[in-house]
Nucleic acid binder design. Structure first.
Lengths: 224, 224
DNA sequence: ATCGCAATACCCCGAACGGGGTATATCCTA
DNA sequence: TAGGATATACCCCGTTCGGGGTATTGCGAT
């Protein structure tokens, strides 16, 4: 446990933050709150994604963190993630929104967002989340995490698994890609019958009898 | 954004916390740090899981949160999650450890841990995480979240998906169970050929050509 | 030195798959 | 009311699968 006093300026350079939110009052209040931290400078606010993207195309000084709302006039935040990543690949994009629906979370994470915070957070929480982002973390609101966990089937892990050999895992990797035994054998440079034998062993170990059940089991229990 | 002043005692009752960690110094220092928050009372510390479980069997006053280390003499924290849940079902169990290996994280979450914090967190971060737990959140260290996200296949969502009809989803549900067309047809009370036609349409829509690729795509993109 | 296991390779055969058709009834929308 | 999507059903045919064998080589533990 590192007992770093919260507000002590660490010896790193300023964290530069952009804020994209169409609520002007929120922008004002929140960028002020951000600036109270000596490590953070909220450089610019935008009310539309398009403006931010346009700006970043010509601006050489990219921000470290982009706080991005979802519901915006014009291009929505979710659709702005990829364009933003394109014009500023090294910026961490953190969603900051009231929308906590599963679909939005998935889409944001899939599109490359580093974090997903809710506007119900206190500014202090957002601050520490931003700092966490800079050290390789992924800031997520606890509620969001719980939703993510519910979305993924972590149940019945580690029941029948275990003794799948490395070679068998090689086979499995191609099976979940949908390859036939013949193709798998070619990929692994072994005879058709060899790959087939391996697969038979896998079937026995995992107690499945079809390709689809196998693929399902492998993915659900993360056997790779 | 709720501008709640951080240290203001909210109108809820005290959060009771148990701490299980074999490092006595850590226990002392950390329970002291916890007690600085007026909302939290670190009621007891244990150096072994067995002690805590034994104690809770007779103790009617269950804690709200149990902070649990992983590496412990005797029973390890991961194996203690389920017994603890048994003797105190309403306690939120939050791992607090230096072990950030994927396997541990998965096991903890699967066993029912509400959160997973790292000892590299500041006490303040742990405090706010505990409070988040009480309001339905799942506290996770940002690093842990990132690991979790990497573990789950969230990639290529939303490319070819979409227009799968309800009836086709019925078929899909059985396909990922590993049933043959014949069995699926029986389950749905339609002719063999009907189920087969549906499946052909699915193949075309999702652009796959094997059962295993289909199952993989369905699970990875959560088409059900 | 032997036992076991993993990896390799081959044989056989009935069952199921994949992909190409065609066809009907229904329902919703344009 | 005509067109489009959906659910239903059937035919054909070559390929692949699933499951049952057997067998050799090599490595690590006993």
């Amino acid at each position: 446990m590192s007992h770093t006093p919260p507000a002590q300026p660490t010896a790193t350079k300023l964290i530069s933050v952009f804020l994209i939110d169409d609520n002007e009052e929120f922008c004002t209040v929140f960028s002020a709150a951000l600036s109270e931290d000596p490590n953070i400078r909220c450089s610019r606010c935008f009310t539309r994604c398009e403006h931010a993207i346009e700006f970043l195309q010509q601006e050489p000084e990219k921000p470290d963190v982009i706080l991005l709302d979802i519901e915006l006039p014009g291009m929505w935040g979710l659709d702005a993630i990829e364009p933003l990543k394109k014009v500023s690949p090294h910026s961490h994009i953190v969603m900051l929104t009231i929308h906590d629906h599963d679909r939005n979370i998935i889409r944001a994470v899939a599109a490359g967002a580093s974090g997903y915070l809710l506007k119900s957070s206190t500014p202090a929480e957002v601050l520490s989340a931003i700092e966490a982002t800079m050290t390789g973390g992924a800031p997520m609101h606890p509620i969001v995490i719980q939703k993510l966990l519910r979305m993924f089937p972590i149940q019945d892990i580690q029941d029948t698994d275990g003794d799948i050999t490395e070679r068998e895992k090689d086979i499995l990797r191609y099976v979940v890609e949908g390859l036939t035994i013949e193709s798998i054998a070619k990929e692994l440079n072994v005879a058709y019958h060899t790959a087939k034998t391996h697969l038979k062993h896998i079937y026995a170990k995992l107690n499945v009898h079809t390709r689809s059940a196998l693929a399902a089991k492998v993915l659900k229990q993360r056997l790779l």
